[in-house]
């Protein structure tokens, strides 16, 4: 995909989406806002899992860091939420950098274990430090706009998602992105050609953590109540499933996965407690039988059809 084509598609899509508040009611707008949050989360997680082959289980935790940093600064110290979101993003990036340096020398499994541990520790700290975080009761925070309105938040989240996608695109389709994929495909070959493997991984981890921090900060100020649900493993599971079902390692996959699964989960919410279970089973089946997700399936069909038409034309010729 060329730069120009990407930006044309992005701006057309954003333009069309920004018409939505004219036609949608409050509830549907809410679903779209949540979807956009997951677009940010899944796309930035995809940078790790899909492009550099690192499975982090702390992505939701980084969103939590962004949300709680900004929320605490705003609720306790009266800081402007926008500045809070910015600080939360920076803090998530710094912690991501530290964690990346700590365990990325060791290779994949260590990162997965450490991030899983980190996210569990964060949950324990947030639940226990009741006086600062209000524990499971949730922390009430001010909104990003003076007069609460769904359309305003929809545009804010749309802006956030657009920013996230541009950053990811610029990174993935640059020389650095080429290095990312080289590292994922064959670490040793990449290293032998002069790619600094550890540095590439740490870079991807830091950027992805920062983007999660920003998404969490914006989302927290939309919900107005920040609970340990944001950095929970359940949330991590949703982000992971969306990426896997949409298609890991493809740019469009997580976007499609996030929007379609958020809408799907709103439909099956009617069945109450079953909805996480159903979601999990779907994710399990897709991950097992179609490891490249919906995008992989689509590409497969497309390629199959092209090949078929080529054979037909060859036979005709």
């Amino acid at each position: 995909m060329t730069d120009r084509r990407f930006f044309v598609i992005l701006f057309v899509a954003v333009g069309l989406l920004s018409l939505l508040p004219l036609g949608l009611g409050v509830y549907h707008l809410h679903v779209m806002i949540v979807s956009l949050f997951y677009v940010m989360m899944a796309s930035s997680w995809n940078l790790l899992a899909g492009y550099t082959g690192q499975v982090s289980f702390a992505h939701a935790a980084f969103a939590g860091i962004g949300a709680y940093t900004s929320g605490i600064l705003a609720a306790k110290f009266g800081l402007n939420p926008w500045i809070g979101v910015f600080i939360g993003t920076i803090l998530a990036a710094l912690i991501g950098l530290g964690m990346g340096i700590l365990c990325l020398r060791m290779g994949g499994i260590y990162l997965s274990l450490t991030t899983l541990g980190f996210s569990e520790i964060l949950r324990i700290v947030i639940t226990n430090e009741y006086e600062i975080t209000r524990g499971t009761m949730g922390l009430q925070v001010p909104g990003l706009v003076a007069d609460y309105s769904k359309p305003a938040y929809f545009y804010i989240m749309l802006g956030g998602a657009m920013l996230t996608l541009i950053v990811l695109y610029k990174l993935i389709y640059s020389d650095i992105g080429l290095n990312f994929r080289a590292v994922q495909n064959d670490e040793r070959a990449a290293a032998s050609l002069g790619v600094d493997v550890v540095r590439m991984r740490v870079l991807a981890f830091t950027v992805s953590s920062a983007l999660a921090g920003m998404a969490g900060g914006l989302y927290g100020h939309y919900l107005l109540l920040i609970t340990p649900e944001i950095p929970s493993l359940d949330q991590q599971f949703l982000v992971l499933s969306m990426t896997v079902i949409g298609g890991m390692g493809s740019f469009l996959g997580p976007i499609i996965g996030a929007i379609s699964l958020e809408i799907f989960s709103e439909y099956i919410r009617a069945y109450g407690e079953y909805h996480v279970l159903v979601f999990g089973l779907v994710a399990l089946v897709v991950a097992r039988f179609a490891p490249n997700g919906l995008m992989g399936l689509a590409e497969h069909r497309l390629r199959g059809r092209r090949k078929a038409s080529r054979t037909v034309s060859a036979a005709a010729g």
Binding site: V55, G108, L240, V244, G280, L284, A287, R288
Partner: peptide, 15 residues
């Protein structure tokens, strides 16, 4: 593909 077994068992644990 070690990464996929991580993802699959993680999904399994939530299920």
């Amino acid at each position: 593909n070690d990464m996929y077994s991580l993802i699959l068992t993680f999904i399994l644990s939530i299920v």
